[in-house]
Simulated scan of single mutants.
Amino acid sequence: MADLVTAPVLELQAGDRVHERNDEWQPHPFSTDEIYIYTVESVERINEDSVLVGIVGGDIPSGINYGPQDTVRREMR
């Protein structure tokens, strides 16, 4: 398994790989595994309460909403 660091959502960069535990965040229907891993495509602050992290993969653009104070576990660069 990759070495992980905790990082603020707003510090994510395109190409970062994020690991989310399903017991903390329910990504269904994306994954039924214990850990959901996604690759960041973009990070956009929508407003003072919302950050949209675009994810790579699939034919339809997808994104995950976070708060600006949220942190994630990402692979070390």
Rank of each mutant, 00 (worst) to 15 (best):
A2G: 03
A2P: 14
D3H: 12
D3S: 12
D3T: 15
L4E: 12
L4K: 14
V5M: 11
V5A: 07
T6W: 07
T6F: 08
A7V: 15
P8C: 05
P8M: 04
V9H: 06
V9P: 08
V9I: 10
V9C: 05
V9F: 05
V9G: 04
L10S: 02
L10A: 02
E11F: 02
L12M: 09
Q13A: 14
Q13K: 14
Q13V: 11
A14E: 15
G15V: 12
D16P: 01
D16G: 00
R17S: 06
V18W: 09
H19S: 12
H19P: 00
E20V: 12
E20F: 01
R21I: 00
R21N: 03
N22V: 03
N22A: 11
N22T: 10
N22G: 09
N22F: 05
D23C: 03
D23W: 05
E24N: 02
E24Y: 00
W25D: 01
W25P: 00
W25M: 11
Q26R: 06
P27K: 05
P27Q: 11
P27H: 12
F30W: 10
F30R: 14
S31M: 06
S31F: 06
D33K: 13
D33C: 04
D33F: 03
E34P: 03
E34L: 12
E34M: 06
E34I: 06
I35H: 06
I35N: 04
Y36T: 02
I37K: 05
I37W: 04
I37P: 01
I37A: 14
Y38H: 14
T39K: 14
T39G: 08
T39Q: 15
V40L: 11
S42W: 09
S42P: 06
S42K: 09
S42Y: 10
V43E: 00
E44A: 12
E44H: 12
R45P: 01
R45H: 00
I46V: 13
N47P: 04
N47L: 09
N47D: 15
N47I: 08
E48K: 14
V51W: 03
V51D: 02
V51H: 03
G54F: 09
G54C: 07
G54E: 07
I55T: 09
V56K: 15
V56G: 10
V56E: 15
G57H: 10
G58A: 02
D59M: 08
I60Q: 13
I60S: 10
I60F: 08
I60G: 02
P61N: 01
P61C: 00
S62V: 04
G63A: 05
G63T: 00
G63H: 04
G63W: 02
I64L: 07
I64F: 02
I64M: 04
N65G: 06
Y66L: 04
Y66W: 14
G67L: 03
P68R: 07
D70K: 01
D70F: 01
D70R: 00
D70C: 05
D70S: 10
T71R: 12
R73K: 09
R73H: 08
R74L: 11
E75Y: 09
E75Q: 15
E75K: 11
M76H: 02
M76L: 10
R77K: 13
R77Y: 04
